[in-house]
Amino acid sequence: MAATRPFAPLRNLNAKIAAVPMIATVLVVFIGCTLWTVVYSFTSSRSLPTLDFVGIDQYRRLFTTSRWIVSLRNLAIFGILALSFSLVLGFILAALMDQKIRFENTFRTVFLYPHALSFIVTGLVWQWILTPAYGVQKVVRDLGFETFNFPILTDGRFTIYAIVIASLWQGTGLVMALMLAGLRNIDDEIWKAARVDGIPTWRTYLFIIIPMMRPVFATTLVIIAATIVKVYDLVVAMTNGGPGIASEVPAKYVYDFMFSRGNLGQGLAASTIMLTTVLIILVPWALYEYRPRNRTLGVGK
């Protein structure tokens, strides 16, 4: 309910004062800092920012650096796998949870608790479980499969998949919770009608319920994708980018070049690419969500 009367500049002054932190955050941090980064990514800044513009040199160097290419490739593998598995598994879990089961709260608690843990804790636990000398590999060998190899953390070709496993453990519960909420919002009449028509449950899900839940899927996808682009702590805790540079990711490239290597230009260019990636995900979704009808933002309705 908006107060729709016209305002003199000083009317409603308290509300404007209350909004000062928000306005400052938007103008200084979200807009100001972002523009600063984009502008300085075109300079030759090393350990200190300078306004010596060098065009797209930083980007050219970025895309000829093997560590960056590996980072991007890892992000793509991680992103595609984490996104598709968490959506599919999260939806399946939610659909199972929606079958009037007993102990629903217990299952929900179990599926969601990893989401309360930090990426650091998640990464360290999975690092321990997957350590070849003590973890899964040793356990299977002890069972009698002497030649069993599971060098997922030590063989660079597979390390990124280990990070996918850990992130699915941490994040699928969230997808489940969102999907379950979406399922509970589906009108009962739909189910009744489908049953009257004799449509099997799985077909109802596939051809009626899932298409109806498109907004839920779209929103979940954007949320998950935005977190995937930022993945940092998990990698630091689990592999620290190793072995070698095998599990490097863009966010870590940014941090290392900005804060450890004193190569600001590279860090800023890399973070600008991250921003671009997020925009590529975000803009189509925003256009879809804010089609002319312009509904109110968010939850709680």
């Binding site: 972002t34 966010a251 991250m274």
Partner: peptide
């Protein structure tokens, strides 16, 4: 919308 900007973009400023 600002909440979606990766933190890395705003860190150094």
């Amino acid at each position: 919308f600002g909440a979606f900007i990766p933190y890395q973009v705003m860190l150094y400023p």
